[in-house]
């Protein structure tokens, strides 16, 4: 029997390949139409990672070095669910971010802002049975970039998630609700719908806030889901 396909991409939810406001897309965006690939075994399967992949302190970016990093400590937590609202359990979540001064621990980030020897800005965890994840980190700083005159990225954390198949892969950026830089950011603004953009903004959450330790922010992630009404796909089988 054929595999149950995933739902096709919902129009209006995803950025276009060519988005000239973000200059680097111009030479890096296919112009010929994409070819719709039916979902075969190659698409409905994908890598599954075990806890062997994780190191101690992978989910606590403030405890990976000798001392504490500089900046506002915070908890970022949420759920990974699919488009049908079902939790995505046991999936790898990876994050990376700038330090509190807005500088990445990276050879190509030569900006005039201090590195923090106690912060390299990378984290990794696996969702629990309810699809939940939780990181401890510091609030990333703003940083300028070369895209246009006086361009600044809003504070953001990069998220990479796999989900159960090749099709469900997602790399997105988490922003902060109310960040004044958001409307000026072509990467944020490349997500077409306002609802889609809002969904990328973490909200302050009192319940996640740990007394005397740090503020909590909730960020839920939605991966592609299967067609809600699975059908018997045996029409190819004759």
């Amino acid at each position: 029997m054929d595999p149950i396909p995933y739902r096709r991409e919902t129009p209006g939810t995803q950025p276009p390949a060519l988005w000239p406001d973000y200059r680097s897309t111009v030479l890096r965006s296919p112009r010929k139409p994409l070819i719709a690939l039916p979902h075969t075994l190659s698409e409905v399967t994908g890598p599954i990672f075990s806890h062997d992949r994780l190191q101690p302190n992978d989910a606590d970016l403030t405890s990976q070095h000798k001392d504490r990093p500089i900046g506002d400590r915070m908890i970022v937590a949420g759920r990974v669910i699919d488009e049908n609202g079902r939790p995505v359990a046991g999936t790898l979540v990876e994050i990376w971010q700038a330090n509190s001064a807005g500088r990445y621990f990276h050879a190509r980030d030569s900006r005039d802002a201090p590195l923090d020897p106690n912060f390299t800005g990378g984290g990794r965890t696996i969702t629990d049975d309810a699809g939940q994840y939780r990181f401890i980190t510091i609030k990333p700083g703003y940083y300028p970039w070369q895209n246009h005159e006086n361009a600044w990225r809003p504070a953001h954390i990069h998220f990479s998630v796999f989900g159960p198949s090749f099709v469900t892969r997602l790399i997105c950026q988490m922003y902060f609700e109310g960040d004044p830089m958001l409307p000026f950011d072509p990467i944020y603004m490349s997500v077409p719908s306002e609802a889609g953009r809002k969904q990328l903004c973490a909200a302050f959450d009192y319940d996640l806030t740990v007394p005397g330790f740090g503020l909590g922010y909730r960020f839920d992630i939605v991966l592609r889901g299967r067609d809600a009404t699975p059908f018997e796909a045996d029409d190819h089988a004759h």
Binding site: E9, T10, T13, Q14, P15, Y22, S24, I81, D82, E83, N84, G85, E94, I95, W96, A98, Y104, F105, H106, A107, R108, D109, T120, G121, G122, G123, R124, H158, S160, L170, I171, C172, Q173, I187, Y188, S190, V191, S193, A195, G196, R197, Q199, L200, I221, V222, L223, R224
Partner: peptide, 19 residues
């Protein structure tokens, strides 16, 4: 019904984590 989270570029600074 929830909508799929919007994709974003990996950017140029992923090397400490992803590879």
């Amino acid at each position: 019904m929830p909508i799929e989270s919007g994709w974003a570029t990996v950017g140029p600074f992923f090397h400490a984590v992803l590879p």
